[in-house]
């Protein structure tokens, strides 16, 4: 009886840690999504494709150079450039037509998914981690736990704190926040809003690209992951509140925990809990937990 209890606690601890790592990944992906929406009111349905493409590029660079950090940075940079290109070439000149932008991004995600399938095929990839992250760390209750997953939690904290500092303590952050509050006024003050838009799109896409490398190292990459992370981003920002970074953190935590516990304890209804959270939030607080009224 006692051993049984022990095992259950161990399972609980491992599941909790798994939930935290998943929440970290969701947060990094969704923070870029929510940042882009907060400023530009663009629902970027291609955000999941950027995640997956970033992961694939990270895999290729990692395989070529053998350096994980280089892979992470290159994937982030390439995706940031791709994001900037998307904003300049497609979304920029239909600014204000949010539905049309969303439809265009859906078109892009379809083409991107198909081209990735053509190039990388249907098999599953894993980005190689440096050896010191492939080890296991001893954690009370849980026993050995993968260092890579703990690294992911650390990364999410760094991204969260970094975004907070940039948004609240720097001049660029001030401009972005001003743009979120009143875009027209900012433009009237003589700031170059289109350039700020491109920059924010690049940051959001870059975060998604890096998340792809991290997700591809800790979990794996395969076709269909783009839709999965798009879905998680959507639910995270609906729950947390559109355009809010703290909201993305809260939403990611709730959604990932519900998903992980759900899958561990009631495997065939895992997604129902995530969905129930979304329904509950929409019923009682349509603007999201941390969102402002729309």
């Amino acid at each position: 009886m006692e051993t049984l209890l022990d095992i259950n606690w161990r399972l609980f601890a491992v599941v909790t840690l798994n939930g935290l790592t998943l929440a970290s990944l969701y947060f990094i992906v969704a923070s870029g999504f929510t940042l882009i929406f907060g400023l530009m009111r663009i629902i970027n349905m291609a955000h999941g494709s950027i995640y997956l493409l970033g992961g694939y590029i990270g895999y290729e660079v990692g395989a070529a150079t053998g350096n994980w950090l280089v892979a992470l940075l290159v994937a982030g940079a390439v995706m940031a450039l791709a994001g900037a290109a998307l904003q300049i070439a497609i979304f920029g000149w239909m600014q204000g037509q949010d539905l049309r932008q969303a439809l265009a991004s859906i078109g892009i995600s379809i083409v991107a998914a198909d081209q990735m399938l053509a190039y990388w095929g249907g098999s599953t990839y894993q980005v190689d981690l440096p050896s010191y992250f492939s080890s296991f760390v001893s954690i009370p209750l849980a026993g050995g736990y993968s260092a890579a997953r703990l690294l992911l939690i650390g990364l999410a904290v760094i991204v969260g704190v970094g975004l907070w500092v940039v948004l609240n303590r720097t001049r660029i952050g001030m401009l972005i926040r001003a743009g979120v509050d009143d875009r027209d006024m900012l433009e009237a003050l003589g700031k170059n809003v289109p350039v700020i838009f491109v920059g924010v799109f690049a940051i959001g896409a870059g975060l998604a690209g890096m998340a792809g490398v991290v997700g591809g190292s800790v979990l794996s990459l395969s076709p269909g992951e783009d839709a999965r992370y798009l879905l998680s981003s959507l639910i995270v920002v609906i729950v947390g509140g559109m355009g809010s970074i703290p909201g993305a953190a809260v939403g990611a935590l709730l959604v990932a925990m519900a998903e992980t516990y759900g899958l561990a304890y009631t495997p065939t209804y895992g997604v129902v809990y995530t969905f129930a959270i979304m329904v509950a939030v929409l019923a009682f607080r349509p603007q999201g937990l941390m969102g402002r009224a729309v």
């Binding site: 629902i43 539905l99 839709a227 879905l231 959507l234 639910i235 609906i238 997604v271 969905f275 729309v294």
Partner: peptide, 22 residues
């Protein structure tokens, strides 16, 4: 109908994909 416009698109997509995973 709790929300409007672009949010409808997001919510219905989330519903659709949740049903798929279910």
């Amino acid at each position: 109908v709790r929300t409007l416009g672009i949010y409808t698109l997001m919510i219905t997509l989330a519903i659709a994909m949740a049903f798929y995973f279910l």
